[in-house]
Each structure stands twice: as C-alpha cells, then as structure tokens.
Design a protein around this nucleic acid. Structure first.
Length: 403
RNA sequence: CCAGAGGUGGCGGAGUGGCCAAUCGCAGCAGACUGUAAAUCUGCCGGGUUUUCCCUGCGGAGGUUCGAAUCCUCCCCUCUGGA
C-alpha cells in the first residue's frame, strides 16, 4: 500500500483529500494531530483517545530522551506499545527545543532589556542579536548539532541529525521529522539563512543515516522499518529563504515535507504569508505537515495551501486552562468565569461529544475551581472532540469543492 | 468568676512607634497561551473613574506622641485551661 495517496483535489484551491498509510493504521487527511509530547496525551487514557477519534498523534524525541530514555522505550517495543498508543504516531526531532528551550533564557533577557530600554525598535534589534547566545538549557548550537541540558537531571544531551534519527527509530513513531533548527522571531536575515542552511545540511545527514540503516532491510518505499521521514522547510519570515528551502526539501528523497519555524511569535498574517509563499512548491505526491499550527482560522486558511496534517498543543493546553473550544460563543469559553457557576446548560449544544451530552457548565466550572483532575480530562476530551469534528467538516467541504 | 492568649482588608495570616493603604497565601476579577520545562504565566484586587493625588482604615471609645495597626486606660468580643 502506498504510504501517501491523494484521493481528491479541490477544484477551488490547493486543498486536497488524502490518506497516509502506516503500520499502525490509516490517517484520512486533512487531519489534526494532538500533541502527546512525553508519550501521554495529557489527562486522557488511550481508550478515550480512541473514542474521540484521534487518528494521529505527536510525540517529542527530546522529552522522551530525557525521560524515560530511548533504550527503555526500545526494549518496551517502542512508544506505541509502551504507551498503548495503537494508532499512527509522528515524532518531532528535537529541533523545536532548540527554539523553545533557548527562549526561556531569551525571555528573561528580554525582560531585563525592557526594564532598561524604552525604545521598542532598539528592543527588537537587541532580541535579534541575542539569538544564539549561551543559555542554561541550550548549551551550544553548532554545525554538527545541538547540546542541550536535560530538564530532568541537568546532564548534557547531544542532538545531531544522526542521533535524532537513531532516537526516533528507537521510539518507533511511524512518521519522523528530520532534525532542524527552528529560528526565533524576530531573527536577522543572516541568522535565518545560516540556520536554514544548517537545517538543509542536517536533512541530508538524516537521509544518509536512514539510508545506511536501511541497507539490507528492504522496506519498500520507506527507508527503515516502516518509519517515514519528513524534511523540514525553514526560512523564518523571509519569503525568498522560504522558497529556497521548500525547493531544497522537496528535491530530497524524503517521504513527506513539513513546514517549520512558524507560529513562533510572528503575526498570523505573517505566518500565512510564509506558508503561502511555499504552497506552490510543495510536492503533490507526498504528505505535507505544518508544524505547530492549529487554530480554527489557521486550519481553514492553510488547508488551501495543500497542508495535510497540523499538529498543535493549543486544544489540549487550553483545555487544561479551562478554555473550552466551541463553534458558537466566539470559538471559546472560559469555564473558570463566575458566570458559569449556576449555568446548568450543557457545555456546547453544537458539539454532542460525550462531555457535552453528559455534563453541565456548572459542573465543569466547579471541577476547575476545585482543580479536580476530572475537569482537565473532560475539557481535553471535549476540545479534541471539537477538533475532530472540525476536521471532518473540512474534509467534507473539500470533497464538495467548497474550500 | 480566676488565669492565659488573642481581635488586622472577603478569608487565612504578617507587621508590633515613622520607609503602612498595610508583606504573603487563598478566593475574586481581567488577560495570555499555535512542532508543551505549561493542570501554567501575567496584571488588578479598601474607596474616589488615570494619578508621583485625596479620603476612610488594623474590635470600640478615649489618651500619650511631631507621628500609632504598633505605647497607655477603660469597654466589647473570641479562644484555651481552672473553679
């Protein structure tokens, strides 16, 4: 069975219907990919995840290397088995942590700078310059790879393209991301270009590593053990770099293409612009993933650029903050608000998921106010149900050429 | 009735002569969150519509002092032992 199959091309845009086939099942695209960083989709049991209808979820190599460690995972038979995630999985390479962990340090520096400087432009200028400085959590970014400090026990962890691939193979997710460097926003052109080129070099190394591993293992289209590799497009907010990156990544023998380095602080408009810039360069015969994007309006708009899968922490994170996604009520309600204290209406009439059919706003409000564990579970269950329903609509609309 | 401890903003609880409209926590209110160090973070939180400004204010009433939540006197109330 082909790894990726385009089933329908909208007549109205680049939007398309497709299917991704993996050893752990099929994914109908466009699909939303909830994030289960540490091998757990926070607050949900595998049974609940299945029930919601999640097709594909996301795990993070960096976090799994830190804990529990890839060797235990491998011994356990892979993360699918260990976590009882009996559906397709995608693993991130650790590249995003180059951005997110370094930013912690960056943030505190920014705070200090803000205290000392009033001039905003100057402030932004400084932000760009700070990039790449030493930080407690990202020790060093070099051509060879990145040295991180473990969040868990402080030990030094080194990621190179080869190591990321090795770790991802041990983790065993079906879809793997090439090791990349996710750049900051704002970042200078020079830095962004350098990071992009580094990302390209790293992609070649990832491909070579997988090839070497595949020798003697005849696995059809995939390089190794039915795990598929996505190359990542970078280029920050510079359209010419984005295009260059897209062309390069698409030219590589990768199974899929991902767009990274977006929604890292730039405006929505800017983000759309960058994805749009690359839309015409995306491969027609391979799946396209957009990293880190998943708000309703983003998905509607970006599906039109030919994006097949979207991962995003937002629905699950917001759920834990008490923000319930909704098709009415201007997209979300904050169940913590006092106005829900005595509201005996169902959470979301238009939803119809188990949570909405069963529980009232007053009950959810109460659970959140009391910080009861069940509250987080119910909210997460609901938000992901909304996402699944939403993606279903999107697929339907593409099928009818409405998108 | 005797002895001891205590009464501070919605609650808990610091402060024990000026830097106190009063630390802090909780609750409340508002905001943020897009490849998860996030069940997290930020701001407000006596009143006056912003304020480096004014009012009220640490059980009550007096008093000492340039100045009191903080010291003194009396009163009211609570708690813990004893009768």
């Amino acid at each position: 069975m082909a790894f990726f199959k385009k089933k329908y091309q909208s007549k109205k845009s680049r939007a398309r219907l497709g299917e991704i086939n993996t050893a752990h099942g099929q994914v109908k695209t466009p699909a939303f990919v909830p994030v289960a960083t540490k091998g757990t989709l926070k607050t949900l049991t595998p049974k609940q995840i299945k029930e919601i209808g999640v097709q594909l979820s996301f795990v993070n190599t960096y976090h799994l290397v830190v804990s529990p460690g890839v060797d235990v995972i491998e011994k356990a038979g892979g993360i699918h088995k260990m976590a009882d995630f009996n559906w397709p999985l995608m693993s991130d390479s650790g590249g995003f942590q180059v951005f997110s962990l370094a930013r912690q340090n960056f943030k505190s520096q920014i705070t200090n700078i803000k205290k000392n400087l009033n001039n905003k432009n100057q402030d932004n200028q400084r932000r760009a310059d700070i990039r790449g400085e030493e930080s407690p959590l990202v020790k060093k970014i070099s051509e060879d790879g990145v040295k991180f400090r473990s969040l868990y026990d402080g030990r030094l962890i080194e990621f190179t393209p080869e190591k990321s691939m090795e770790y991802q193979m041990k983790i065993g997710a079906d879809l793997n991301m090439a090791f990349d460097e996710c750049t900051y926003y704002p970042a200078t052109y020079e830095y962004t270009e350098k990071a992009m080129e580094r990302t390209h070099n790293w992609l070649v190394r990832c491909v070579n590593y997988k090839r070497a591993q595949a020798i003697g293992k005849k696995q059809g289209y995939s390089f190794f053990n039915k795990q598929y590799l996505y190359g990542i497009i970078q280029g920050g907010t510079y359209t010419d770099l984005r295009k260059k990156s897209a062309e390069f990544v698409a030219s590589q023998p990768v199974d899929g293409v991902a767009i990274g380095g977006v929604s890292v602080g730039e405006t929505k408009k800017e983000m759309r612009k960058q994805v749009g810039a690359v839309a015409g360069l995306l491969p027609d015969d391979r799946p396209v993933h957009l990293l880190g994007v998943g708000q309703f309006d983003d998905i509607i708009d970006l599906v039109k650029c030919g994006i097949d899968t979207f991962d995003c922490v937002e629905p699950t994170r917001l759920a834990r903050m008490g923000i319930l996604l909704s098709f009415s009520d201007s997209n979300k309600i904050d169940i913590n608000k006092g106005i829900y204290k005595n509201n005996l209406e169902v959470v979301d009439k238009s939803c119809g998921c188990w949570v909405c059919q069963t529980f009232t706003k007053a009950y959810l409000h109460h659970l959140f106010k009391q910080k009861e564990i069940l509250g987080y579970t119910l909210a997460t269950y609901h938000n992901l149900s909304v996402m699944e329903k939403f993606m279903g609509h999107i697929r339907e609309m593409i099928g009818k050429d409405l998108i």
